[in-house]
Design a binder for these strands. Structure first.
Lengths: 200, 200
DNA sequence: CGTCCTTTTGATTAAAATGTTCAAAACTGT
DNA sequence: ACAGTTTTGAACATTTTAATCAAAAGGACG
């Protein structure tokens, strides 16, 4: 009998490799234009071999996106745990998320409406909204503890900021390709959020 | 009766527009992955409308490539007529051609062998080889006139150099994607050619 | 070698996509 | 209303493509 852990390792290794290559191809051509043959021949396997690792094209795509999201989560975790000024932290958080999202958007940068892909990404957005609010809240609480922010309702504030970030993501996932200079826009929004619009 | 010249203009205008957009899409996805629907919806027309302007997908692709070649020819003409040192002119000629070719290569940067596209481009290469030899010859003759080159058989020299350029194009049209630093390679080859050629 | 498990594959199929044709419609200027 | 131009939707034949499956190949181990 083969040792389970070894064979699992081998399989997982193959799976990872397929994911890595599939990621490249999906990000280049989008979900619809990428065929299983493209991926299979890129990993030098028969097309049917892919079904040993993933139960469908959608499944594979889903796995690719999920991995991307994991990476994003990991990067955000790092940003959050850095010992920086709360405002900078907020800024870094937003910029990191946007950068990764710009990449994610590639996955369905197709001309036609790639319904499946859009569906996946929308689904992910919804699923992770709660996490996002929680993270933002942590930043806000830290800001108050450091005596930099003055916030009365953390939940509302976090929801507000999360919503603002969603607004920033829009031009990425929608078709607005004209370089909007995101960094500048982020700074402007940050300024508004930090100093408020009221004269004092 | 409508005035012929007007209607022709309108049609040509539309044709040009289709070509422009088709160029973008072909260069992004390659010949095979680009569908007529992609192009049609990008120009906001029905798919069948395209057949009013081009008799087939191949025909359209062909037209796109031809336009690209025209542009290349135009740019090369400019380089050749610039009043520069013959060696620089040779260098500029090669670099200009390679730059455009790098773009051309995009048109069939597909994973699979895009036989049709490859065929077209090979055909063009062959057709324009004679022109190329002629242009190179002009540069060489000018170089001798300016007392910088010392060449006894212009034809042979031009053919040799053209062949060398072909060698430089190979990594572009073949699958060699690993950045080969073309500019450096060009300089090296130029150096070899020059010190074999230059009067001393 | 034979056994058991893992992994790969070619053949097959059903469904969807795609290039192409064509006759009819829409549009345009006179 | 007319004539020429341009657009289009429906229809079709052909390929492509995702998915399935049973069989084969590979590999560890007694």
């Amino acid at each position: 009998m083969q040792v389970k852990s070894e064979s699992v390792n081998k399989k997982d290794q193959n799976r990872e490799n397929i994911l890595k290559i599939a990621r490249e191809i999906f990000s280049k051509y989008g979900f619809k234009k990428t065929t299983l043959d493209d991926i299979a021949s890129a990993v030098r396997k028969g097309k049917s071999s892919l079904y040993y690792y993933f139960k469908s094209k959608e499944d594979l795509f889903h796995a690719v996106i999920m991995k991307e999201v994991e990476i994003l989560a990991y990067e955000l975790e790092i940003v959050i745990n850095r010992n920086t000024d709360p405002v900078d932290k907020l800024r870094d958080y937003i910029l990191t998320k946007l950068a990764t999202f710009r990449g994610l958007a590639n996955f369905y940068h197709a001309i036609e409406n790639d319904v499946t892909a859009v569906g996946f990404i929308e689904e992910i957005k919804i699923r992770y909204e709660q996490d996002e609010i929680r993270m933002i809240k942590r930043i806000l609480i830290e800001g108050v503890r450091k005596n930099e922010f003055e916030i009365y309702d953390f939940n509302l504030a976090a929801i507000g900021i999360t919503t603002a970030i969603k607004g920033l993501e829009m031009p990425l996932t929608a078709g607005t390709y004209g370089e909007v200079n995101l960094e500048r826009t982020v700074d402007i929004i940050l300024k508004i959020m930090c100093y408020g619009i009221m004269k004092r």
